[in-house]
Computed example of a mutant assay.
Amino acid sequence: MAQNIVIVGGGPAGVVLFNEFGSKLSASEASVIMVTPRPYFTWLPACPRMLVTEDGELEKRVLMPFPDNFNEGNRKVVLSKVVSIHDGEEKAQRFVTLDNGETIEFSVLILAPGSKWDGPLGFPESKEEDLEFIKKWRKEFAEAKDIVLIGGGAVGVELAGELVDEWPTKPVTLVHGHPLLLTATYPDKFRQDVVDRLIRRGVNLVLGDYVDDIIPKDGKITTRKGTDVPADLVISTRGGKPNTEFIRTLGSDVLDDGGYIRVRETLQLVDHPRIFAAGNAIDIPEGRHAYKAARQALIVAKNTVALVRGSDDPKTLWQYRGGRNSITLSIGKDGGACYFDVLWGLMFGDYFASLKKSRGLMIDMVKRRLQL
């Protein structure tokens, strides 16, 4: 009798897993169910540009509908949200509960819930609402006179680049709590290079300082150090938080203090050998990128196939060893910066970044690789 493999999340990890099982497991071995609230995949790295400009109608390409074959053979997409998980000793005691009250039994459960975002990346959960959300942000950006972004990670850097690309004379300020942009995951030399590139593009930087109250008063905000920054639109571009509140139903020890899922090297949850996790919500100390999520998903896929086929000896399962931390940032349509953690650390600028990401935002490559 076919076993149920349930995947929670339709992001990079979830879709990679869905495709892997469709090609590696027969209908007699497993039924594959992906639970996600949206009937489409959203390519987040392209969203800063999509939210700033109408050019190219990017919403038609960035919101990628799941194809019909996602509901054929041994695969099915369930449009819903998981609100709780029960993991018992017997098969009938393993199930997830959906927000409509229905339950789905699982033999293997894979958690790939991704992140929750504030501000422009905090998308709703329907196509109609998403399109209105996109229009709203485009209007706010267009009408704003002084824009301030709070948080100088990849989202803040790329959104600042898109804003000055679209409106070169509009004041855009980026406030970041550290002396250099991004995080210490990357070397100072690269982080300083990103600082220099934004300054050359006309972005105002306030580094090593914080903003506690992001609501403008009298046309400005004031940092902790007392710096007044002109502002009529202030946006949080801090990193996303793990979308894991529903996983607490497994027990208080499944998440760390930051809300990330505790996993073993096999990407199994501690004390839950038939539950795996992958993507931005796991507690592995490395950069959280779509390509990392996809690599983790491939390890989870191999281990899930092994469990389905009766090989549950931990010694036979694959282990995720992490990888090098590389990043490509787009800074407008023709600019950017790249860092590759190989040799002595390779850095590239506008030309390479524009070829790799900035011009096309990797949309066609992602659609092809995810079979969308």
Score class of each variant (00 low, 15 high):
K225P: 02
K225A: 05
K225S: 13
G226F: 03
T227D: 07
T227Q: 08
D228T: 08
D228V: 08
D228S: 13
P230N: 13
A231P: 08
A231C: 15
A231G: 08
A231M: 15
D232F: 05
V234A: 08
V234D: 13
V234Q: 04
I235K: 05
I235E: 04
S236E: 04
S236G: 08
S236N: 14
T237S: 11
T237C: 11
T237L: 06
R238T: 15
R238S: 08
R238K: 13
G239P: 10
G240P: 07
G240T: 06
K241H: 09
K241Q: 10
K241Y: 07
P242I: 13
P242D: 13
N243A: 14
N243D: 14
T244H: 10
T244Q: 13
T244A: 09
E245A: 13
E245T: 10
E245G: 10
F246E: 04
F246M: 12
F246G: 01
I247T: 02
R248W: 14
T249N: 08
T249A: 08
T249G: 01
T249V: 07
L250V: 10
L250K: 02
G251T: 11
G251W: 04
G251R: 12
S252N: 14
D253W: 10
V254F: 02
L255H: 05
L255I: 07
L255F: 12
L255P: 00
D256V: 04
D257G: 09
G259L: 01
G259C: 07
Y260V: 04
Y260G: 05
I261H: 05
I261A: 03
R262V: 00
R262Q: 01
R262D: 00
V263Y: 03
V263C: 08
R264V: 03
R264I: 02
R264L: 15
R264C: 09
E265M: 11
E265F: 11
T266H: 05
T266W: 06
T266Q: 04
T266L: 03
T266V: 06
L267W: 00
L267R: 00
L267K: 02
L269S: 00
L269K: 01
V270W: 12
V270D: 03
V270L: 11
D271Q: 14
D271R: 14
D271T: 08
D271I: 02
R274L: 07
R274S: 06
R274N: 15
I275M: 05
F276G: 05
A277D: 12
A277G: 13
A278P: 04
A278L: 00
G279A: 14
G279Q: 01
G279Y: 00
N280Y: 15
A281C: 15
I282E: 06
I282P: 03
I282W: 03
D283N: 14
D283L: 05
D283S: 06
I284C: 14
